[in-house]
Design a protein around this nucleic acid. Structure first.
Length: 297
DNA sequence: CCCCAGGCAGTTA
DNA sequence: TAACTGCCTGGG
């Protein structure tokens, strides 16, 4: 039995409602750069797609309301997706004791959780993320889904589609993929799909590998370098000790710790030494902190 | 118009 | 293996 089972859960009318759910802020979770398919609604809730489901999430005081879901899917899919059985209070307490910088970052993004997302969608999403901006990454992922994914249903008057699987993408032309505004990354996306199909790669099984073997497998894909591979490790493979060093992590680390231009490898080493098994969490708090406050820019 | 955005591959030295 | 360079796209 996980921690979430100790809480009061109400299941009614296609909603699952949890009172007293700690360390959970939709804005922090969905806008900390880890996911691209969650969008803010007019009422402050977020609607997104994962694991062939459409879900809406809202927080009201200490209550979190999951809409468009039944209790079976909640237990089988979303508890894992939102990492609800993980004690973020403990993680934050441990990390915050290490120095004032990470302590401030944690206070700022106190409701962040690392989502356990689908490996294939995350692999392609982060190939698209290279030298790109979040709103445009979201637009490309959305277009790929709408044009080539399977129809899932309607919610609040909008149609939703899943992310096309590797086989579906492998059958597309480079031009079809380019039509989703992915630019020069189209050949990497098609190449990745063909590699997965031709080499019979089961990305879910990479979760069973250790971090290093998992990384070495991912970096064989054209379009996946060190940063993207580490993002896939943290956001889909459960390898939370990994440390993606992007431009914001580089900025915030140089601003607070190095005070000079520093190679990404050195930043990664420093972070892993400082934050250990919690490096991926620390990275996410620091990223959100830096990007929202434009630290180091 | 220029600049840059959660990097990468390819080329050089 | 480190240092460079060009890259689709589109919003500021």
């Amino acid at each position: 039995m996980g921690a979430v089972n100790a809480l009061e859960i109400i299941d009614k009318n296609g909603k699952v409602i949890i009172r007293g759910l700690r360390d959970f802020e939709p804005k922090h979770i969905f806008e900390c750069g880890q996911c691209f398919r969650w969008n803010l609604e007019d009422d402050g809730s977020y609607t997104g797609v994962a694991y062939d489901r459409v879900l809406n999430v809202r927080k009201d005081g200490d209550t979190v309301i999951f809409d468009n879901v039944n209790i079976e899917d909640f237990n089988n899919i979303w508890v894992g997706y939102f990492d609800l059985n993980n004690d973020y209070g403990k993680i934050k307490h441990d990390l915050a004791g290490r120095d004032e910088v990470i302590k401030d970052a944690i206070n700022f993004g106190h409701g962040i959780r690392i989502l356990r997302q689908e490996p294939w969608e995350i692999l392609i999403s982060f190939i698209i993320s290279a030298n790109n901006a979040i709103p445009r990454i979201k637009k490309s992922v959305e277009r790929l889904s709408k044009n080539f994914g399977q129809y899932l249903g309607r919610y609040r008057g909008k149609d939703f589609y899943n992310f096309p699987n590797a086989e579906e993408i492998s059958r597309l032309s480079e031009e079809q993929i380019e039509s989703c505004s992915v630019g020069f990354r189209a050949k990497y996306i098609l190449g990745a799909a063909r590699k997965v199909i031709d080499e019979n790669i089961f990305l879910e099984q990479l979760r069973e590998l250790n971090s290093e073997d998992c990384y070495n497998t991912l970096i064989e894909f054209k379009g996946i370098g060190p940063k993207v591979a580490n993002c896939i490790l943290v956001f889909a493979m459960g390898k939370i000790e990994a440390c993606p060093v992007d431009i914001w992590i580089k900025r915030v680390m140089e601003h607070f710790y190095f005070h000079e231009d520093t190679p990404n490898k050195k930043i990664e080493q420093f972070a892993r030494q400082k934050f250990g098994q919690y490096t991926g969490y620390a990275q996410q708090y620091l990223f959100y902190y830096a990007r929202e406050l434009k630290i180091g820019k």
